[in-house]
């Protein structure tokens, strides 16, 4: 089976500005994939390129093995997409908007429209004009529009924007359902790190048009495990740990406390090493880096756009 999405060495240049510089992205199967990056990193450009709304300068994109460049119609059959602020025909109702998009997808029966409206919680408001919809309701309608045609790949650009807390919880449940019960791959970009960490199985972090980190959530967050130790003499213990293979970044944080990156070593290995050097270990704890910490470590804290 080909990957659901395979992006290779994707480049996009606007004049002299390189928005994307050889981006690689693979979604091998169903799951929720987080797509992170600061403002201007190239997330929306990547999404628009996959959607066929922009033309790439170089590189290739395949959706379920179908090349977007050579067979855009076939590729779009596998794709559902919701942009950051989904636009609709304001003079039409929510139902009429979905019926219009369903027609464009070649869907003639109204049952899929009714089913999707019920799924996103808009059934009671489906006959109201979209002009009267709140931002959260537009997001819900956008999700329903993305799911028309039962796509294997769903791309959501900032789907949580404008949703109230209850809506965010519902969105979380929908995403889990799409990935785990319906077997779709969901690529989602968002700035809400906590939500992303809670929802996504895997992450790709981009900065200045290139991937800076990619992998399963557990791999990324556990790649940098910090061990904190309380000992009678932190200087002596620090020297012992500095000599221990696999340990790095040893830092003394007090006369009786130090911390280090344990890397491949387990807590038990660190404890055994200190005890073997006749150092009493009074307390030992480990902590993993949160997604937010990883993000800031990789892309920096600057609020300037990339």
């Amino acid at each position: 089976m080909p990957p659901i999405l395979e992006v290779k060495r994707l480049q996009k240049r606007y004049g002299k500005f390189d928005a994307l510089r050889g981006l690689d992205l693979i979604l091998s199967g169903p799951g929720v994939y987080g797509f992170l990056g600061p403002n201007g990193a190239g997330k929306t450009t990547t999404i628009k390129l996959i959607a066929g709304l922009l033309n790439p300068t170089a590189g290739s994109m395949k959706i379920a093995g179908i090349d977007v460049a050579t067979d855009p119609v076939g590729a779009h059959r596998q794709l559902g997409i919701m942009m950051e602020t989904p636009a609709f025909y304001n003079q039409l109702t929510g139902r009429e908007n979905l019926q219009l998009f369903a027609r464009l997808c070649g869907l003639n029966d109204g049952s899929s429209v009714d089913r999707l409206l019920a799924r996103v919680g808009l059934k009671s408001k489906s006959d109201d004009r979209v002009a009267s919809y709140s931002r959260g309701m537009r997001q819900r309608l956008g999700l329903a529009a993305a799911l028309l045609g039962d796509p294997r790949l769903v791309i959501l650009d900032e789907p949580m924007n404008g949703l109230d807390p209850a809506g965010i919880v519902e969105m979380r449940e929908w995403l889990a359902q799409m990935a785990r019960q319906e077997g779709r791959a969901v690529l989602m970009s968002s700035h809400q790190m906590g939500e992303m960490e809670r929802i996504c199985d895997s992450f790709t972090i981009i900065n200045r048009g290139a991937v800076v980190a990619s992998g399963a959530a557990a791999e990324l967050t556990q790649s940098r495990t910090t061990v904190s130790v309380r000992v009678p003499d932190s200087e002596t213990a620090a020297n012992v740990l500095r000599a221990m293979p696999g340990i790095s970044g040893v830092e003394i944080v007090g006369s009786d406390r130090l911390r280090a990156e344990s890397g491949e070593c387990s807590t038990a290995d660190v404890n055994r090493c200190l005890v073997n050097h006749n150092i009493d270990v009074l307390e030992i704890t480990t902590s993993t880096e949160s997604l937010e910490e990883i993000f800031f470590r990789l892309v920096g804290r600057s609020s300037d756009v990339a």
Partner: peptide, 14 residues
């Protein structure tokens, strides 16, 4: 200008 083209051009039609 209204942005609805983003909804239309991602559908399976040339």
């Amino acid at each position: 200008s209204a942005g609805t083209i983003q909804q239309v051009w991602v559908r399976p039609l040339s």
